[in-house]
Design a protein around this nucleic acid. Structure first.
Lengths: 258, 258
DNA sequence: TTGATATAAATCGTCAACGATTTTGATGTT
DNA sequence: AACATCAAAATCGTTGACGATTTATATCAA
């Protein structure tokens, strides 16, 4: 068999999975039944999303609609809606009549994604350098300290989460929700790339680059901040070996054999 | 009544609107019935999209599902899918239990959109300047000539289409599909902004700026090309008067009275 | 006439079921 | 044993219908 869908949710512990008619007895505080629909939908989306970030859902994994229906106790219409959203964000690929799978970026797409990240983040760090407030720098340095603690953590997703948070914080400082959205999408696809091609990332090195970026931001040195961000993203891309991939369907075949 | 949905499609002349069961008699060449689903879906999407660009669908216009069902002879599931896609691209807003309307960017969103465009297009024009081939410059100058012809056309959407094509061509020369997608989304939202706030755009002035951008690209002057693109986008934004808006629901109310 | 209230219409969200397609597994032949 | 053919299971695409919510209309009192 192919890879199956597991997704033991951890972060958002356990939204009560009542979905049988109205609210059972409780006086239905606040939002009521209408919001429940969008809530369960958001919950499913978030669960898949987090699973991708944590590399529990790896590229090529099939997501059959009936399985998801049982997992979340919802009808297929709801699952379908979530899958379409995930497809639009390039997290899953919807193959007509053949089901949904977690997207597997090709080498060409990988180049495009990193190039787009450079184009965006260089502008983002410029905005952030111009706009940052004292408390922003404080929080960035706090994130750097936290990073330092995870630098030697062998669990890759832990470091990836740190790095993600760092880049996202800079985008937040830049203050443009649209750019934040675009960057979020690109970073999520990067986690797919990492899961696929397993780069031998040097966390300590990346951490040092992060620190330099913040230093330039603090100095208000826009040009250097831009340049450093560009270099950082290039080195990230250089760490990826498009040759030896962690196998997509190949792994599935291996599981068939082993 | 509120504004109703009309959408007389012009560009994609008239896809045969058969949708009754299978294909009637013709031997169903090529794609068959499976592709017909995605085709009609794409057709509906494209029709709405084009109508927004041509300002036949203006911000605030309601898009009731039953009306669209009759117009395109499809079930609600299909148009629901299209509406969700349009929502993700920020072209329509889906208000729970209250139906879909063409999105109406707020002044704040307008600022964000133009800022995002500057961030993106400055990087895009840099890539395009580095990568353009002789035939790219040729086509760009051809577009400029065509622009010149429409400069004095009082019909605003005609000029808007030209300008859009120009910016899109530069993105194509840059060669990154992801950036093309993002820019396309932002430009579409800009057409909503134009419909809403009706800027007193000076087409001749914009045309001159376009020409300067191409000149810098031809020289390979990256810095100047970036700067000129930034200036151009700023002047576009400056032409928009966020005060006097072309009314959203206000116009609907006026129609109720008149 | 104006305003509030109640009824009716329109619209949306959700679901279960049917048909079509794909994939899996079995059978038989070379 | 390997391959092709065929049947069965799983999965997806689409539809129509039901209940819930919102909006429009009509009625009545002040």
């Amino acid at each position: 068999m192919n890879q199956s869908v597991d997704m033991s949710n951890e972060s958002t512990a356990a939204v009560p999975q009542r979905r049988n008619r109205k609210a059972e007895a409780a006086p239905d505080l606040g939002a009521g039944v209408a919001a429940a629909g969008v809530d369960i939908e958001q919950h499913i989306y978030q669960t898949v999303f987090d699973s991708v970030l944590n590399q529990r859902l790896t590229p090529g994994t099939k997501l059959p609609e009936p399985a998801l229906c049982e997992l979340f106790n919802v009808s297929r219409a709801v699952i379908r809606k979530v899958l379409q959203r995930l497809e639009h964000e390039r997290i899953v690929e919807l193959r007509p009549n053949k089901g949904a799978v977690i997207a597997a970026p090709t080498p060409e797409e990988t180049r495009q994604i990193f190039e787009a990240r450079r184009a965006l983040e260089v502008s983002i760090v410029e905005l952030a350098t111009r706009r940052h407030k004292p408390e922003d720098l404080e929080e960035l340095r706090h994130l750097l300290d936290h990073e330092h603690g995870v630098t030697h953590n062998p669990y890759q997703p832990a470091w990836a989460a740190c790095a993600r948070e760092f880049h996202l914080k800079i985008a937040t400082v830049a203050g443009n929700p649209i750019l934040i959205n675009y960057l979020t999408e690109l970073m999520t696809r990067c986690s797919l790339i990492v899961a696929l091609y397993q780069p031998i990332g040097n966390a300590a090195c990346e951490h040092a680059e992060h620190r330099r970026i913040v230093d330039y931001m603090a100095k208000g040195d826009v040009a250097s901040a831009r340049a450093e961000m560009g270099k950082h993203l290039r080195s990230l891309e250089d760490n990826i070996c498009l040759d030896r991939k962690a196998s997509v369907q190949t792994l599935a075949q291996m599981l068939n054999i082993g």
